[in-house]
Design a protein around this nucleic acid. Sequence first.
DNA 1: TACTTGATGTGGTCCGACCACATGGCCTAC
DNA 2: GTAGGCCATGTGGTCGGACCACATCAAGTA
Lengths: 240, 240
Amino acid sequence: MWSDHIKYHGPMRTHQLVLSWIEAELSEGRLAVGGRLPAERTLAEQLKVSRTSVREAIRILEAMGVVRAGVGSGPDAGTVVISDPTAALGSALRLHVATQHLPVADIVETRMLLESWAASRASPEAPELEEAGKLLDEMAVEGLDVDEFLALDVRFHLALADAAGNAVVSAMMGSLRESIQRYAAQLTSSLPDWEATATRLKAEHCGILAAIRNGDGDRAARLVAAHIEGYYREAGMGRP
Amino acid sequence: MWSDHIKYHGPMRTHQLVLSWIEAELSEGRLAVGGRLPAERTLAEQLKVSRTSVREAIRILEAMGVVRAGVGSGPDAGTVVISDPTAALGSALRLHVATQHLPVADIVETRMLLESWAASRASPEAPELEEAGKLLDEMAVEGLDVDEFLALDVRFHLALADAAGNAVVSAMMGSLRESIQRYAAQLTSSLPDWEATATRLKAEHCGILAAIRNGDGDRAARLVAAHIEGYYREAGMGRP
DNA sequence: TACTTGATGTGGTCCGACCACATGGCCTAC
DNA sequence: GTAGGCCATGTGGTCGGACCACATCAAGTA
């Protein structure tokens, strides 16, 4: 006798009570990013629950990227509210990839979708493009090893995603990259000629950035899609 | 002296050790969906940690939609591995919306992006379209109240997303809807003429489904985008 | 045969203790 | 008067043990 879209959650467990209290505090604005939660022992007493349950709730919030816990005294101590959606989505996706219920191919496809949309929407004047340009300069120097190059590559792509100005898309992009990072590194090691690939990637990066700066979103989107698709194809994904 | 893309995680906390053990078991295939974790007390003894830490790890996995914990004996008891990515993404997004760091407008925009992509990619023969058609029939009957209609509407849209065959996109779609469900319900109550709106929505649903069945993905995508955008505009979002 | 009852094993909750850590103020030595 | 060391305080982190509610199953009983 329950509506379809309202799940029956049984008797609420204690840590969920704590969770909803904190979520309410956030929604009502009594708790904001940068603010601190009451100390665990205090909160336990206030809510008439055990410290154990409070801690379980905080663990969840921490895993969700909503809170950061620090020991000791001073500015870094206590449990403070942060906002890192990428952390939550990233570890969730990684775990579900581990269960083999999220195919890596679907993640790559989703990444192409989000990233080409972002490229087509990015404003030519977005400040993030500055950052992206600087990253390209860093990638251009000689003697970079593979890991360094890849780290810069990640940041370049994230900067492009940020330039579209949609926080949800940015967070999802970041988490997708994170969830398949290990996998991607593995792919890279199987490339026939890394130097050649790196040169090509750099050229494509420049093309993408130029297209965005010229206001040609459609072209940028096409280039991004080709860029990503080409990389994974060259690395031998999908067609074993 | 740590590479850019490898974060230094300080001394690993005990529950994280449990977490990585379980994640490894999943990755190595020793633990799969439907399988059960060792009992909390057993696992604690195996890993030489306290039951508290084991429980914290399990709490996180539960919040991530990776396991389900059940008391008592029998088939529903114990901690069993499931796979519900939507749960994780949904609560994460909802929490971050609460912190006001994820604008609702960005979520709506992302939903439009994902859903129109799904419509353009859906195969005309996808079995999910059967389901979608049945849902349209149910929505056509007279005397449905608003909540019932909305519940069917959600399922219709999710069915379309599933028809594209990308698990990541499906999960993200579901979580986006979940995270703004309360908000959407609030919007709906402010509609000037619900009956008229419902009639229009039903007509647009039929048009979308027909376009997909005809293999006209581009048209379907355009219709979906207009469908969603029109709804939120009519309800007064964005342009106050 | 049908019912009751207890043993067993599960997660759920709570408590009290101790640890490591970081700060701040007090107290001492110079 | 100042500089240094030291301890009180408060934070999260971990642990072990206890008890509860619940569901099943097997043994005993009517």
